[in-house]
């Protein structure tokens, strides 16, 4: 049963100056699926992820060609407001990056900058987001303590809660567990399973077991090119290409 397409990239190229970091990527992301992007470091998977909420706009001398559609609308079209795109496409980075503010303020931040002023509404949103990120129980008694006092795993779940509070449609995760211990990693993975009921999730990981555990679809990147994409089960058991097989079996680099 095919679900509607949430995001589509058509012949996407990305350049840092003269260096072509991504070459002709065409890829489709179905709604309420988890797609994993795998590949060796430097293969362009993170660059690709950062194209999807226009985070690469911040890099000087960078340039993108091709189109990237969100619900059929090109997010790089000149009339599109980048700020709106970023609140529709949330992002969680590799290293937990809470602001040096309280736990509450961290989560309220996205609401406040998007113009929510009603205090009770903010408070209930904060609670809901923390519950969804499976963090509420651990922090409900110290919402006004600094977020920097949380453990690494808690901080990462806080960052997820912070992203969820804005109610994005797509959630991008750039190696969200690489700085965490196995137990924290397991919690985040369980969380991803629950979140995909509501969101379209795209996750970059270098950990193939993780990709196999959490994703429905896996795309393999190498040297800025999309090599192979398939259902995760299929890709890991019957890869079509030799390159993919070499990578997933560890005979690579």
């Amino acid at each position: 049963m095919e679900r509607p397409l949430k995001m589509v990239s058509n012949h996407l190229h990305f350049y840092y100056g003269d260096f072509e970091a991504l070459h002709d990527i065409s890829l489709e992301f179905s709604e309420n699926k988890v797609t994993a992007l795998i590949g060796p470091s430097g293969c362009g998977k993170s660059t690709y992820l950062r194209c999807m909420n226009r985070m690469n706009d911040l890099i000087a001398y960078s340039r993108m060609e091709g189109e990237l559609l969100l619900d059929g609308e090109d997010i790089y079209a000149p009339s599109v407001d980048v700020v709106t795109i970023r609140s529709r496409v949330g992002m969680v980075l590799q290293k937990p990056n809470p602001f040096p503010k309280s736990i509450f303020e961290n989560i309220a931040y996205g609401l406040k900058v998007n113009g929510v002023k009603d205090k009770s509404k903010i408070a209930s949103k904060v609670e809901k987001s923390l519950i969804r990120a499976a963090l509420w129980g651990e922090v409900k008694d110290r919402l006004h303590d600094s977020a920097l006092g949380l453990s690494g795993g808690q901080q990462q779940r806080l960052c997820i809660a912070r992203a969820l509070a804005v109610e994005p449609e797509v959630l991008l995760m750039d190696e969200p567990c690489s700085a965490l211990d196995p137990i924290a990693t397991q919690k985040i993975e369980e969380l991803i399973h629950q979140l995909k009921i509501t969101y379209t999730i795209i996750i970059v990981t270098h950990n193939m077991q993780q990709a196999a555990r959490v994703s429905d679809i896996t795309a393999f990147f190498y040297m800025g090119k999309l090599i192979e994409v398939n259902y995760t089960n299929t890709l890991f058991t019957r890869p079509k290409l030799k390159q993919t097989e070499d990578y997933i079996t560890g005979r690579f680099g």
């Binding site: 909420n53 700020v83 609140s87 980075l93 990056n97 809470p98 931040y109 900058v113 998007n114 992203a163």
Partner: peptide, 27 residues
């Protein structure tokens, strides 16, 4: 001020000015 603060703020749909005044300058 770590770049990740700016990215996190922008990623949450804050404008550049909001990011500067609410996250970067206080830090």
């Amino acid at each position: 001020v770590p770049d990740t603060y700016r990215e996190a703020s922008l990623g949450l749909g804050a404008t550049k000015l909001q990011t500067i005044f609410r996250v970067v300058l206080p830090t």
